[in-house]
Design a protein around this nucleic acid. Structure first.
Length: 490
RNA sequence: GUGGGUGUAGCUCAGUCCGGUUAGAGCACUUGAUUGUGGUUCAAGAUGCCGGGGGUUCAAAUCCCCUCACUCACCCCA
């Protein structure tokens, strides 16, 4: 016997009976998104890896260990400095001067492991003052390859910039529905290929607290439309870039004496991105952080005012939320408003959706200096949290039963005439007993059955049976219109 | 990357602790219950490398070792 294949780990087939539910979710979401003035955009499911490195953030777990790199012969080149725009002579000269030459292997693997041990970044920073050069040396693969998208925002922003939307309109509102990919260990509510519904509002006029509120209200509205009610909305503001910077400094200072007590992850976070220490789940880390009394002191007056307006707008829309000063999110691009919607019923992977504002991402990716705000919802998690009721499966209008060879030919032709007239129908392609064909018709959920046998053939008629009432009618086989009307109960 | 759990019929599982006839159940499937009429009921039938490899034994689904897959949790996130 030949080898039997299974789906790759962390992926799954969405089978026909499940697709009805998926279509329902997508339909409801599309409807609402359009009601709110968002238009669908479809971007490739892979992009240059660098796009994600620069948007999601080098220090994020997504980039460091979850990105699925595409590699095939002739595409991922052996790493060469000049391919990523570095002068190799320059780089090596500097490295040799600083005694680093022997630590760098051609593939950079050794160097990367130094980074994860946290030993290298400070040292290297002294050698290369330019962050981008350092990046290219440390993560060359991200500058020479493609990756499956781990999230949607980066691609949308890229498309916004590439297509010069800022010249076209003052505010662009996009939504997307599609698969995302992360190389994590799968578990309940976490897959390597998962699907998101997301929306982004980008443009010079996107900096309004009412747009923050709209985005949050919209994500809540979609969940409610799908029958979800048991979820919590956590809200926070990180402030602008400067506030974030100040907050980081403040945290570094406050946490310095106790930083040795953090879990190993937070040891790294402390050095690379202190904010992330705040949402660590480790008990010890939480205890340390809880002792800090985090409030909104890190926010400038302007940022605090903005956040107040967002909250006010949400109040007006009667969207209930809870302010969570420790909510920081794992993607580096967020500024100001961040939010997360979680469902306690989901277990450990409880985030149904999340989002926030990202004021600097568009310009960071080479676009105009415009603001943006958005959210993403996880479809699989929505499905897990949705009330279990069955979504109506597609039913057939008619099932045609042919009882012998001669009637089969007529039946086959009739079936196609009806299909062309917008009647959904099917038949058995094997002539078997009336009983078994009736059973089949019933299983397919056919509303009516057309019977064609010797008796009908002689008179040029068909028998039409209503499967619900059991009533039968006889009609001329040539009278397609009347047959159709009976079948569709018109 | 680190732990725990589970792999037996198409599906959901019992049987494993304490080795012993022919490995079971429910659902699903096929056929039938007098001529060409479904759902409910009844009857009959088909279905298994007991995840894979190795070992112990007269004898292994059952005990031991290895391995693979799935799953849950840590981590991280949607």
């Amino acid at each position: 016997m030949n080898k039997k294949f299974n789906v790759p780990r962390g992926t799954s087939d969405i089978l026909p009976k499940e697709v009805f539910t998926w279509e329902y979710v997508e339909k409801e979401a599309r409807q609402l998104l359009r009601n709110y003035g968002y238009n669908e955009i479809r971007t490739p499911i892979f992009e240059k890896s660098e796009l994600f490195v620069r948007s999601v953030g080098q220090t994020s777990d997504i980039v460091q260990k979850q990105m699925l790199n595409l590699s095939f012969q002739g595409f991922v080149e052996k790493y060469q400095f000049d391919e990523i725009g570095l002068d190799s002579g320059d780089v090596f000269k500097k490295l040799i001067e600083n005694g680093w030459a022997e630590k760098i292997s051609p593939t950079q693997i050794r160097l990367k492991s130094y980074l994860f041990e946290g030993k290298v970044i400070g040292e290297m920073k002294k050698v290369f003052e330019d962050d981008e050069v350092l990046d290219k040396i440390l993560f060359p693969q991200y500058y020479t390859s493609l990756s499956l998208r781990p999230e949607g925002t980066a691609s949308i922003v890229r498309a916004y910039i590439q297509n010069n939307f800022d010249r076209l309109e003052r505010l662009s509102k996009f939504f997307y529905i599609g698969p995302m990919f992360r190389g994590e260990r799968p578990q309940k509510g976490r897959l390597r290929q998962f699907h998101q519904i997301g929306a982004e509002a980008i443009g010079p006029e996107s900096c309004s607290p009412y747009l923050d509120a709209e985005i949050i209200a919209l994500s809540v509205a979609i969940l409610k439309a799908l029958g979800l009610s048991d979820f919590n909305l956590k809200l926070n503001s990180l402030g602008d870039e400067e506030d974030k910077e100040n907050f980081s400094k403040y945290l570094k200072k406050e946490l310095k004496p106790v930083s040795g007590n953090f879990c190993s992850n937070c040891q790294r976070r402390y050095r690379l991105n202190v904010l992330r220490v705040l949402d660590c789940n480790n008990k010890d880390c939480q205890a340390i952080v809880d002792g800090l009394d985090i409030h909104d002191a890190h926010l400038s007056d302007k940022s605090r005012e903005y956040f107040k307006e967002v909250c006010g707008a949400l109040d007006r829309l009667k969207v209930s939320y809870e302010i969570f000063p420790k909510l920081v999110r794992g993607l580096d691009y967020y500024t100001h408003t961040v939010f997360e919607i979680s469902a306690p019923s989901l277990g450990s992977q409880d985030a149904l959706g999340a989002g926030g504002r990202y004021s600097n991402l568009v310009s960071q990716l080479g676009g105009p200096d415009v603001d943006a705000v958005g959210f993403a919802l996880g479809i699989e998690r929505i499905l897990l949290a949705m009330p279990k009721g069955d979504v109506e499966a597609g039913k057939l209008n008619v099932f045609i039963i042919a009882l012998d060879e001669k009637s089969f030919l007529k039946a086959f032709a009739l079936l196609h005439q009806l299909r062309d007239a917008d009647v959904s129908g099917d038949m058995s392609y094997r002539i078997s007993s009336m009983k078994s064909q009736m059973r089949l018709a019933n299983k397919k959920g056919a509303g009516h059955v057309i019977i064609l046998g010797e008796a009908e053939m002689q008179k040029g008629e068909v028998t039409i049976k209503n499967m619900e009432s059991g009533d039968q009618a006889v009609e001329s086989i040539n009278n397609i219109k009347t047959i159709k009307n009976i079948i569709l109960n018109q």
